[in-house]
Design a binder for these strands. Sequence first.
DNA 1: GGATGGCTCCCCCTCATGGGGGAGACGCTC
DNA 2: GAGCGTCTCCCCCATGAGGGGGAGCCATCC
Lengths: 216, 216
Amino acid sequence: MPLTVLLVDDEPLVRAGLRAVLSAQPDIEVVGEAADGAAVIPLVRQLRPDLVAMDVRMPLLDGIEATRAVLRSVSEPPKILVITTFENDEYVYGALRAGADGFLLKRSRPAEIVNAVRLVAEGDSLLFPAAVRRLAAEYGNTSAREAMDRAALTEREADVLRLMTRGLSNAEIAERLVVGTETVKSHVSAVLAKLGARDRTQAVIAAYESGFVSPG
Amino acid sequence: MPLTVLLVDDEPLVRAGLRAVLSAQPDIEVVGEAADGAAVIPLVRQLRPDLVAMDVRMPLLDGIEATRAVLRSVSEPPKILVITTFENDEYVYGALRAGADGFLLKRSRPAEIVNAVRLVAEGDSLLFPAAVRRLAAEYGNTSAREAMDRAALTEREADVLRLMTRGLSNAEIAERLVVGTETVKSHVSAVLAKLGARDRTQAVIAAYESGFVSPG
DNA sequence: GGATGGCTCCCCCTCATGGGGGAGACGCTC
DNA sequence: GAGCGTCTCCCCCATGAGGGGGAGCCATCC
């Protein structure tokens, strides 16, 4: 059975784009659309989607209030993926506090969007790596490392990512961790998926941008 | 005899900060200040400093031209340490090509600033510290200055490295720069050689560690 | 003029990388 | 006990990446 998604955005163009990107996936089905937050609750009750992809800035009822309302009024609420244009959107922080499971930038590439939908639907939290640092700053007493944990990296995956940021190859990481190269490849693939990275270079960039590691 | 330093920066605040940091060292003496590049040459002739700490972006005469002018017009030129606010290094690489001996980010910690001044004054160069050391080790009796020259990126190579640090593939870089992928591969190979990196991931790491780019 | 260096593009080649599957062992929770 | 997640390892496969060559064009410098 496919992954069912409800789209909520006041811009028809954005909805059309998301529908095109997501419907192209065999395992994802867009079951409905809404143009504002007020229409979300009845649609969620009626359609029972696995995930709601929702803009944070909308008329009538914004993403924060809509998220809160959905979580209150539905017994088995869908996962909620908040969509935003800006990285440093204070609305995102509010939405995450209200219970959203992750957020995504509108300018993300299609592959990243699909990846984010799948990850959040599967229960992992997802924060766009470049924004983790800012969120960590906003949370104040929360460390960047803890914010990174919201991206659901396991201990071993974090070990692997750390060695990746030292420039090690898979074979060298395997030697360092005393495991097989196939194991390292599994972990690397998991890291790439969770960070929304296409290759290890992008993963290292995400690690620096997120504060997972710092220069010097 | 103390290490004599001439400060050149158009911002009085920066000069005051550098003076405070450097004067606190018993072996370093700040012998003069200048607010723009045009004032550098007469001051160098008059004061004969061991080292000039110079901002790259200045009115009238920028750091690149000032560096070139000093090296041309003085028989025994001082070491030149280029200071920059940004990791966006068009100017820095221009200055290094013009003959500067190293560069430093303004946001460096005081200890790093002092260290950089001492190192450059002693004849060591600061560029990509890790890469320079590797190159020096590889080429044995090669001086640090020669190693740095090898590590001085051309403009095009800097362009490529910058796009590498944004996670782009060779094909994407080629598209962005409107050249062929073979050309990009040539530049990438040159960048890897100059940075002492084995692959693009290590090059990106070197870029972050050196301040060529910075997170956020 | 010749030399140098940067930018461009081409060939061939090897191999690490990453995606697609799957599977067993272990420890945890329900 | 069953289920789940993590860690471990395996297969096949396509391809991007990087090394080692070479070459032409152009600007600058001597």
